[in-house]
Simulated assay, not measured.
Amino acid sequence: MVRGIRGATTVQANTVADITKETYVLVNEMIAKNKLKPEMVAHVLFTVTADLNEAFPAKVLRELNGWEYVPVVCAQEIPVPESLPLCVRVLMTVNTDQSQSDIDHIYLNDAVKLRPDLSLTNK
């Protein structure tokens, strides 16, 4: 069965260090909580808000051991007025036997505001 796993985080500043660090924490939490192996992942889409342009968050995933063959892409979020700034979002499309209700979607830092209903289910 194919499922989507969502995740998001915010960074303190538009710097390579901040984007890389917070993306690393986010994807590692998504992988750990959902017990993912690279072979389970069809592809990963990263989006960033318009105020983040110093680094590609997808590079973090490409550098994880065993993840170099997982297709990843970065895109810019649509610039909706008053949307959450300095935000990195992730959508992993995975093959899993888990039901949708068993998927752990991960929202960190100020990104918990995006889906407080799912943030409460983070185990």
Rank of each mutant, 00 (worst) to 15 (best):
I5V: 06
G7A: 03
G7V: 00
A8L: 09
V11H: 08
T15Y: 07
T15E: 12
T15G: 11
I19G: 00
E22L: 03
E22V: 05
T23M: 07
T23D: 07
Y24K: 04
E29Q: 02
A32P: 08
A32C: 05
K33S: 12
L36P: 06
A42N: 02
V44G: 14
L45A: 07
F46R: 14
T47K: 15
V48A: 14
A50I: 08
L52P: 10
E54L: 03
E54T: 09
F56L: 06
P57W: 08
P57Y: 05
E63P: 07
E63M: 14
E63G: 07
G66M: 05
G66I: 04
W67E: 11
W67M: 14
Y69T: 00
Y69R: 09
V72Y: 04
V72C: 12
V73Q: 15
V73W: 09
C74Q: 06
A75W: 06
E77V: 04
E77S: 10
P79G: 00
P81R: 10
P81Y: 07
S83I: 04
L84S: 00
L84P: 12
T93R: 11
T93I: 13
N95S: 03
N95Q: 08
D97R: 00
D97K: 00
Q98N: 02
S99C: 07
S99H: 08
S99Y: 02
S99G: 09
Q100F: 08
S101G: 04
D102R: 04
H105C: 05
N109T: 14
N109C: 02
A111K: 01
V112H: 10
P116R: 13
P116H: 10
L118V: 11
S119C: 03
L120I: 08
K123T: 09
K123E: 06
